[in-house]
Amino acid sequence: PKDEAKKKVKEAIKRGDEETAKRIAKKYNLDWDDAKREADEER
């Protein structure tokens, strides 16, 4: 599900692992900028 994928993307971003985050986002066709902004807001 997309929500689960987005959570994984945000967790990867918070760990500083943007490569993984981008790969997950691409795989699930998520909006990378959107997920990154959300992760930054939660930090």
Rank of each mutant, 00 (worst) to 15 (best):
I13T: 01
A25S: 04
E18I: 15
L30P: 00
R15V: 05
D33F: 08
K36M: 12
E18K: 04
K14L: 15
K27C: 15
W32C: 05
D17E: 05
W32Y: 15
K8D: 05
K8E: 09
K10D: 04
E4Q: 11
A39H: 06
A21H: 01
K22H: 06
W32S: 02
E18N: 08
T20K: 06
K26E: 12
K14Q: 13
K8P: 01
R23Q: 12
K14W: 15
A25Q: 01
G16R: 03
D3V: 11
P1V: 14
A25K: 01
Y28K: 03
K7Y: 12
L30N: 00
D17K: 02
K6G: 04
N29S: 09
I24Y: 04
E42T: 08
G16A: 03
K22C: 13
D31G: 03
D33R: 04
R37Y: 06
R23Y: 10
N29G: 14
E42P: 07
R23A: 14
K26R: 12
Y28Q: 01
R15M: 10
A12R: 02
D17Y: 05
A21Y: 02
E38K: 03
R37D: 05
E11I: 04
A35L: 15
P1C: 15
A35N: 04
K7S: 09
D3Q: 11
K14S: 09
K8L: 15
E42H: 06
A5C: 07
A21F: 00
R23M: 13
D40R: 07
I13R: 02
A25I: 03
I13A: 02
D34N: 10
E4F: 14
A5T: 03
E18L: 15
K36L: 14
A21T: 00
K7V: 09
K2Q: 13
A35K: 02
L30S: 00
K2V: 14
A5S: 03
E38F: 06
D17C: 12
A39V: 13
R23G: 05
W32F: 14
A5I: 10
D33P: 05
E41K: 09
Y28S: 05
E38W: 08
K8A: 14
A12S: 04
D3T: 11
A12I: 03
A25W: 01
L30K: 00
R43H: 10
D3G: 09
G16M: 03
E41H: 09
A12G: 01
A12F: 13
D33V: 08
R15P: 01
D3L: 11
A12E: 02
E38T: 05
L30I: 15
R15Y: 05
